[in-house]
């Protein structure tokens, strides 16, 4: 085992040396590092499969998403219903596939919202400094202090129950960590020579931020985004458990397990809670593996 690893290390060094010679970007290096991280790679493959299933849901789901069959309520898996049916006689497998669509897009879109707010706030605060910085950081403090679920529920009941609102709520409450990271990175970058140079060339603030600063802090942003998706999927499940997530009849993995939270279901109908539970778990696990792999791969300090 150790030998193998060492071999790989050697191989990798060779690869890197070659790429260096050809003058290839640090992204390629990162990618080659990522490729040798088995866990991250597994995560990537699993995720790709899940995303593929979600995108093609309309073609591959064996039954309609909401098709109710009152004659086949709570039936165990059979050749007709491969993963059995739920309490309304809807096909669990089809709902899982469509639920993947919902859960994954909640994760993606909520994180994108957090990303936009977080990067913007962090960049402005870090670059401008002074009063603006102070004001933004107080806003960050305020949002960080919000007890998450309570505020999420308050906002959700103001906005009303739609999947877009769930995404918005999650995104709007989870950008603070990123804002702090971006601000800190920009504070250190700001002092660097190339920024001074850009300033003396008379570039506008927003140009400096978008063209010169942000590309240099893509790595932490990317890592945050990956892990954020995992977090958002879990949060949606938690909100569903409290009755404020994605609402039935639209399925999400979160509301599928929370619909099955009674002792009876846990005891007698494994097909209603194990598959969605397992899918959330596998998805989040894959994303976490990938995110961790990315962190290692993109970390410039981890020189081999």
């Amino acid at each position: 085992m150790i030998n193998k690893d060492e071999n790989k290390l050697v191989n990798n060094k060779n690869v890197e040396n070659k790429t260096m010679l050809k003058g290839i970007s640090p992204w390629k290096i990162a990618f080659s590092r990522l490729k040798k991280n088995k866990l991250a790679l597994t995560g990537l493959v699993v995720l790709s499969i899940l995303i593929f299933l979600a995108i093609t849901a309309d073609f591959i789901a064996p039954h309609g998403r909401d098709h109710i069959d009152l004659f086949n309520v709570n039936t165990a898996p059979s050749s007709e219903y491969l993963l059995g049916t739920d309490e309304l006689g809807r096909d669990v497998l089809s709902r899982l596939i469509f639920g993947g669509q919902v859960s994954l897009s909640v994760g993606l879109i909520a994180t994108s919202i957090a990303l936009v707010i977080g990067v913007m706030m962090g960049a402005i605060a870090g670059y401008t400094g002074g009063l603006v910085d102070n004001a933004i950081m107080r806003i960050v403090d305020i949002v960080m202090c919000f007890p998450f679920f309570v505020i999420a529920i308050v906002i959700a009941s103001i906005l009303g129950p739609s999947i877009w609102n769930v995404m918005f709520v999650i995104g709007a409450l989870s950008w603070t960590g990123l804002a702090r990271i971006v601000r800190a990175e920009i504070l250190t970058l700001k002092e660097k020579e190339f920024i001074e140079a850009a300033k003396s060339l008379g570039l506008e603030g927003h140009e400096i931020i978008t063209k010169h600063l942000l590309p240099n802090i893509l790595a932490p942003i990317l890592v945050f985004a990956t892990l954020g998706i995992a977090g958002a999927i879990l949060v949606e499940a938690g909100l569903s458990f409290l009755g404020f997530g994605v609402r039935q009849p639209q399925p999400s993995w979160g509301n599928m397990i929370s619909a099955a939270q009674s002792m009876t279901v846990l005891r007698l109908r494994w097909w209603q809670w194990i598959p969605p539970g397992l899918l959330i778990f596998i998805t989040v696990l894959s994303i976490n593996f990938l995110g961790d792999g990315l962190r290692d791969a993109l970390d410039p300090r981890l020189k081999q």
């Binding site: 938690g238 458990f241 959330i280 778990f281 696990l285």
Partner: peptide, 17 residues
């Protein structure tokens, strides 16, 4: 990673069961 990836309420219900 497994600990980070299980929904809290799901873990709780499993423990209860």
């Amino acid at each position: 990673f497994i600990g980070l990836s299980i929904p809290v309420f799901f873990f709780g219900l499993m423990l209860i069961k």
